[in-house]
Each structure stands twice: as structure tokens, then as C-alpha cells.
Design a protein around this nucleic acid. Structure first.
Lengths: 341, 341
DNA sequence: TACGGTGCTGTAAAGATTTTCAGGAGGGTG
DNA sequence: CACCCTCCTGAAAATCTTTACAGCACCGTA
């Protein structure tokens, strides 16, 4: 049986209250006493039972992290950065991966984080009103990554601006027939990006005096295969585009694959720009819009921790910058990397 | 304040013991009574406080998952499948991402899972004796993915056999100068694969009567950039290889990049085979050795759960099959996908 | 000399469950 | 009719902390 606080108290010759205070570094303990307690705890290899502590204190030192997927680049990147912030703060990370719309429904009805976390961090989900309401019933600080909701902490990028910059890059290269490979705004697993990135795409075109053509806006489902199928449909259309903006790098990869399969060249026949600056984007020589993924997670996690440690403050909304990264998929030989040597 | 078990007991007109039994589905409760309790719980929107339950029962319904990284394909894939198994079983998943050797040391000295999980699942770490000893002090079921340790559950592939099959594929194509791009067996973050895959490589060569050339065995650090640098060194050598076996798909991507940069062709000038069947391997038309990643995680998690639910059984060691997937990076036009149409 | 602080320590309540044990009711059996 | 069992239920102990509160000793000051 592992040692309890009482064992430590006996060995150190003090009360359990003093042990508790000493170990947690609270004030009002004589230095000599504290040293004695620390020594006793060390000798017995004592660690406080988190469950007893949580029951008594009402705090769990645990953050719930909710994401639609855990094995996609964006999300695993966020998860890594959040975990790092939490473990530095001695917080536990309780992971919930929704997986599909069924899992999503189950999560929001059962709320399995109830009574076990101090705050919740939700990643890139376009929350329905019911879901927002469910989260509110938790009565905990909630952080959302990628969206903005009143009463919640949020960290995100400006998808409209970012998408606009991507399309403007294509326009600046002289392209007029620019297609969009996007996500499904009606997807039951609704992410946040599709809506705003599509808006940015259309705004940029209109800004250049081009009326967006519905035939050039197709669904890619945020996967390589989806992007490939979407590009194939575009190439099969009556007036194929000369450039494509894909809402994610993965869809862009699929698009490139489809283009090459037709014997066409990137960027000479069709220019392709992605979104994310995925880890392999440089390898694929893909022009893209970089977003600070890990940073969004880290900042949001830290904000939640701060709010828990009483650094009060109203829920804030932070918008981080994105950056256009020009490579060979839009401008031949553009990438430093792609150049010889 | 949220409802407590006492509130439910009052509303249902029974004792708290009966509420506890009813809600957990234990026997020895009259159906009518159980229904009344369930209704009361529903009305009060009651969920048991996990901390109180854990304190009283000594069980935590939580599995600790330890991985060196969380944002690399292999690990995020494992994490997803483990999470899925756990959430189906109503288990919590406590995530620990080691990150670097410092984080690794911190984990094994502090053992932050102490007193808070029922079992531990360790992914792809070549554990030192001290680390094994530390885990043993937890006195919990431990599962390891990718290695075998006495007294622990393990699920893995046979890296030697898998690597052998990769190299034999290259041999069968007529290659004699076959290089290895591997991981660092002395890396402080030591994974398990490098050692065994290197062994398989050498065994296959010797089996064909070829003495492995140390100059053809270089370090790629399991990253795209590392693979690229390694391949560059190989090409700069006095007798460049005609084929390369990379211990991961990512390193293979880097190798391909380096080869193409030199103006050489894959597979005509240098054939490349990877390992994993990464999600993008098909897109890259990369020949590789597929391993069942998600399955390894799911199986191991399930075994741990079974052992916790008393389905006793000695710690088992399960070896899953791998499969050679031939694509265009070793045989031109080999991939069904790469063919026109 | 008395009194108010300050610094430190201990007592005990509170937190919300699980689980052991005892016991009552009712039915069947010898 | 007595006894035993089974089925169900409740009382209370146990789990291990945190924290509010009380109290003691000692010092400085009025």
C-alpha cells in the first residue's frame, strides 16, 4: 500500500494539515518544519492522491481537450502544443476525440468531461447552438480554437483574409478562371474553415471584378482523395480553370495528382495553392498560406490556465497572423528549395 | 451546485447505497426501485462525481498513454485508435507526450500517472532498464507497443521480417548496392524500430551473399529533412547505391527529393522503398512495407482493458503481420493508381 | 503589566462516493 | 410451525485530502 499523508505526518512528527501545507508550498510553515516534512515525504516516496485532493478542493487540475480527429496533421499539431503547455503547468490532459457525427452527438449529450475538468478546449468545431448551450451548462471556462463565440476564449486566424491573400496571389499571376476546392459546409462534422475560406475566395474574385462561377467551386472533403476527385471534375468541365485554391494542403496534393495524371503540368497548365503549410508542403513544393498551428493551441491553453489561476479577465478573442508562402506550385522555380544546389 | 447522490436518494425515497447500486447496474436491486432511482437521477441531471468514486473504489477508469511524440503520423494514428477503444469502454484517456529526452526523464522519475490510472500504455519506446523498473513500481498492468518486455502486454510487428521483405524485394529486382537510411540507435529518445529494421536489412543482404557495406548505412533521423540529407551523402559517395531502403516513409520522401534534385529518376536511377504505408505513400507512389498501425493500438488497449476487468491471463505478446506494397518508386508503373485511367 | 499582533500548528469538518455488514420480509421446505 | 434462503435495503465505515477555525507562544508596545 502506498504511503498516505498520515504516514508522512507521523514520520515528520507533525499534523497532516502541516504536511499538506508544506508539500504545496503554502506560506505559514516554519522552514525547519517544512524541511522535515519534505524529507519524510521523500523517504516514503509519497505523492498526494489526486482524487482525494480533487474531492476536497473541488479543483481537478485537468483540462478537457475536444477535437473532431486526432490523427490529422492540424489536430495532432495542436494537441502536441497543448499537451506541452499543460504538462509544464502540472495539469492533466483528458482527451476526447469525436471521430464521427455519432461520437460528436454522444459527447455533447453525455458531456463526459462533466465533474472532471476545470476547463475545456474545443478545437475547430463549428458549434451548433445546442452544442454551445451544452458547453455553457458546464459552467467552466471554455476555449475554442478557430471560431469565435461570445463568452468563450478564442484563438484563431482570419480565414477570410487568409483565403483572400491566396486568391489574390493567383490573380496577381494573371489567372482569371480560379477554382475553389473546399470543404462541405453541410458536413455533419462541420469544421469552421470551409465557410470563411470560401467567403474569402469569392470576395477576392469580386474585388478583381470577377463573378464567382458556381461550376468552379467543388467539394474536396479535406482529404487527398477528395481533392483528387474534385480536381478531376474541374478538369472534365467545359471550361477548366487555370488555377486552383484548395482549402487545405492535403486537398491540394490530391489536385496536383489529378492534374499530373492528365499529363498536365503544375504550375504551367494549372497553378495550385493550398492552405496550412503542412509539414510536407515544402517537400511537395506547394505554394500555401501558412497558419501558426501549434501556436494557436499553446496560446489558447495558456489563456485557459491563466483564467483558472484567477488572472480573471473577460474571455478574449485573439486573431493570429497568416502568411503567404510562394513555392513552385504557382510560380515555377519560386521555391528556394526547388532551385538547384 | 450540482446534484449529489444524496439528492437522488431523497427524491427516489431510498438510501444512497441503493442509488449507487442502481446507477451502476449492480444486481440485488428490485426493478421497480431501480426505475425510480433512474428517473430521479434523470430528473436531477445527476452524474456521479468521478473523484469521489475513484477515491472510494480505488479504481480510476483511466488509462495513461505515453508517447514520444503526438504529432507524427504513426503516433497520432495509434492515439486515435486507442482513444476510440477507451471511449467505448467509458474509460478516460490521460495523455503524456514526452517530447524530448528531458521530458522523457521527467516522466520516468516523477511518474505523473501515479495514483491516477489503472493501466499504462507505452508507445514505441525502447525502454531502458531503469525505465522498466520505474514502470514496475507502479504495480499496474503495462502495455508496450512495438517492443516486448517480460511481464508486460505487448503488440508489435516483426521489424526484422518486415525489413527483410523490403530488401528482398529490391534484391529480386536485381539491385546489389542497396543502401539503408535508418534511425539513430543511440538517439536519447530511442525508438524501437531502428535496431530491428537495420538487422533485417543486413540479414537479407547476407542471405543473398552480399556483405553489408557500412558506407551504405546512414542516419536519417526519421524525418523528411534527415532522409534528404542522408540520401545526398549517399549520392556523394564513391559508389552510390542503386536502391535505398528507408526505415520510414518520411525518410523515403526526403530521399526521393534528394535524388530528383540531382536530376536522377526514381526508380530508374535509384529505387526507393519506405516503411509504414503512411497516408500519403500512395499519393507519392511509394513502395513500402505496410504495418497495421491503428490496429496495434486498438488491440493493445483492448488487452489492457480485458486484464483490468479480471479476464486475468498472463501478459501476452502479439505479433501482427506486415505487407509489402509495391508501387512506382521501385517498379515503374507498378502502382495501379499510377496507371492511366 | 496587559494587550494586540504575528507566526506557526493542530483539530475537525467537509467533500461524494463505494462497499461491507447487518437485517427485514417473504417464500419454500421439512 | 419452525427454519433456512433468497432477495432486497439501509447504516455506517472507509477512502485521502483540503481548509476553516481555533489556539498557543512569543514579541513589541502602550
Amino acid at each position: 500500500m502506498a504511503a498516505s499523508i498520515e504516514d508522512v505526518a507521523k514520520l515528520a512528527g507533525v499534523s497532516i494539515a502541516t504536511v499538506s501545507r508544506s508539500l504545496r508550498g503554502l506560506p505559514d510553515v516554519a522552514t525547519a518544519t517544512r524541511d522535515r516534512v519534505l524529507a519524510a515525504a521523500q523517504e516514503l516516496d509519497y505523492v498526494a492522491s489526486p482524487f482525494a485532493a480533487r474531492l476536497a478542493s473541488g479543483r481537478s487540475s485537468t483540462l478537457g481537450v475536444v477535437m473532431p480527429f486526432v490523427n490529422r496533421w492540424f489536430f495532432s499539431e495542436v494537441l502536441g502544443s497543448v499537451e506541452s503547455v499543460l504538462s509544464n503547468a502540472n495539469y492533466d490532459l483528458l482527451l476526447h476525440n469525436l471521430g464521427d457525427s455519432e461520437g460528436r452527438a454522444r459527447f455533447f449529450t453525455n458531456l463526459p468531461v462533466r465533474k472532471r475538468v476545470d476547463a475545456v478546449l474545443v478545437v475547430s468545431l463549428a458549434l451548433t447552438e445546442d452544442e454551445v448551450a451544452a458547453l455553457k451548462t458546464l459552467d467552466l471556462p471554455v476555449g475554442v480554437l478557430g471560431v469565435k463565440h461570445p463568452g468563450m476564449f478564442s484563438v484563431r486566424i482570419d480565414d477570410v483574409v487568409a483565403a483572400t491573400s491566396a486568391v489574390e496571389h493567383l490573380l496577381s499571376l494573371g489567372h482569371r478562371r480560379i477554382a475553389l476546392i473546399g470543404g462541405d459546409t453541410d458536413d455533419p462534422m462541420r469544421f469552421t474553415p470551409p465557410h470563411h475560406r470560401g467567403t474569402g475566395y469569392r470576395e477576392a474574385l469580386r474585388g478583381a471584378g470577377i463573378e464567382p462561377d458556381p461550376a468552379l467551386q467543388v467539394l474536396g472533403y479535406f482529404t487527398v482523395a477528395g481533392g483528387e476527385a474534385a480536381m478531376t471534375r474541374l478538369l472534365d468541365g467545359p471550361q477548366p480553370p487555370t488555377a486552383v485554391f484548395a482549402e487545405s494542403d492535403e486537398m491540394a496534393y490530391g489536385a496536383i495528382k489529378a492534374i499530373r495524371r492528365r499529363g498536365l503540368r503544375v504550375p504551367e497548365d494549372v497553378a495550385v495553392i493550398g492552405f496550412d503549410d503542412h509539414a510536407t508542403a515544402e517537400l511537395m513544393d506547394l505554394t500555401t498560406v501558412r497558419q501558426p498551428v501549434a501556436e494557436q493551441g499553446a496560446v489558447l491553453a495558456q489563456e485557459l490556465l491563466d483564467s483558472l489561476s484567477g488572472a480573471a479577465g473577460e474571455p478574449s478573442d485573439l486573431v493570429l497572423d497568416t502568411e503567404l508562402v510562394v513555392r513552385g506550385s504557382t510560380v515555377a522555380g519560386a521555391s528556394v528549395y526547388a532551385q538547384p544546389g
